[in-house]
Design a protein around this nucleic acid. Structure first.
Lengths: 233, 233
DNA sequence: CGGCTCCTTGATCAAGGTCAAGACATGTGG
DNA sequence: CCACATGTCTTGACCTTGATCAAGGAGCCG
């Protein structure tokens, strides 16, 4: 199942519902000309908290985690980016240094769109600008939700929620196996807890028949009950 | 010191650095015509989580708290809005229901700008749209920071940080008294903890000579030490 | 085979949430 | 003016949650 790594054309890429979808041929051509493309392996850093970003990355293939680093270097994963998503636009638009680090979780192909090109698009194209604005608002809404979750739910409830979130974002195959593979530590860094707590709760969920575990493969057996655990509001 | 309540003119209002500052006279006239203005008392709700908002509110006077409601109705305050700030733009731009409730903390004068007028401005005015985008990105950055704070700092550190945040946002008078008056419960709802914990920690801070307490008036005696407590990264 | 990294489990302990009770201030109606 | 109710603040006691530390197991690779 190895894919040959070829530089993706924007024309193909926009089929996955990227924000660039509504661009006219003209803009698209310019974009294709000004972008550059790179391949990343698991563990590679795309950009690092505190640095200038210089442009926006569009995920053509693979999975990226976006996190902040806190006490003792403990990561807090804020969100993921997958095929069709863009990352780094906050820093570019605010002309600010990155407030997060982004690292590759699954080998990725990313296109880099220089800040100038991106900002030009935003300024000249009302529809596009509206899309970016909506994207930003969407992330803001999700961040707000995340805040109250961490502040008020307990670890058990949050873990259930994270499993459902991963289901929403990456889906499961026909065997109900989550289509993203995370270490226990990474799971803990989403939930905002210690690795050991995640392990204990996962095996509790397993005991209760909610999930099945096989290494990093997690099978979601009972979505309904997971919802009940996480949706306490 | 009672102020007479008069309907503010946009021309005067934009002196407080609102996002509308860069509008041309023409747009400003339209805005002044299409907006409506209302007076609110402490405790009044401006809009409620889950409802459609219908427009953007611009704070001409007073203080608003923006919060989400969680378990047992416990509030989590996300941010405040004061003179010159706008609220509700996320819902308007996403054409989504409000994901937060906003209530008046200090008697307020708010101007309401219908969604349509606001969206028109965004669409037609590149500069304005850029400003809103930056605002949205700024809030997004703050929300991200908030997430890792709640996830990784302890209550003591977070309380110190909140006091500094309030200082940044509302300032102190010549006696170093914070220029916002919150109940202990409201403080707890920003920090994300129980009221009793806030009370205990406040009196600890008092004991250590960091602050002085007089009812709801909080005097910030030692900003440096507060920084040291909160900035553990 | 040794040396990784990651996973798992048990034991312990502290932070902070919860409950209960009383203090204090403020407002209201008789 | 008092009696009472109400809302906020404060303090003490207790207990749950979840973090931390420690040790061992499983899988993988050069």
């Amino acid at each position: 199942m190895k894919k040959t790594k070829t530089i993706p054309s924007c024309k193909d890429c926009i089929k996955n519902n990227t924000v660039f979808k509504s661009l006219h041929q003209n803009d698209l051509d310019i974009l294709g000309f000004e972008k550059s493309c790179n391949f990343y392996k698991r563990g590679d850093t795309v950009y690092h908290e505190g640095n200038r970003v210089g442009g926006v990355y569009c995920v053509s293939e693979g999975i990226i985690k976006i996190f902040k680093t806190g006490i003792d270097g403990k990561e807090q994963i804020i969100r993921f980016a997958k095929k069709g998503d863009i990352i780094g636009f906050r820093s570019v638009l605010s002309n600010d240094t990155a407030c997060t680090t982004s690292k590759v979780i699954e080998d990725a192909t990313l296109c880099f769109i220089p800040a100038e090109s991106f900002i030009n698009l935003v300024k000249e194209n009302g529809d596009f600008s509206m899309k970016i604005m909506k994207l930003s608002c969407k992330e803001l809404g999700e961040a707000n939700k995340f805040i109250i979750d961490i502040a008020q739910k307990n670890v058990r409830e949050r873990l259930a929620e994270v499993l459902l979130l991963l289901d929403d974002t990456f889906g499961t195959d026909n065997n109900k196996i989550l289509q993203i593979s995370l270490t226990r530590e990474e799971l803990a860094n989403i939930v905002g807890t210690a690795t050991e707590s995640v392990i204990r709760l996962l095996s509790e969920f397993k005991q209760d028949g909610l999930i099945k575990l096989n290494g990093r493969k997690i099978t979601l057996l009972d979505i309904n009950k997971l919802h009940k655990i996480s949706d306490i509001f």
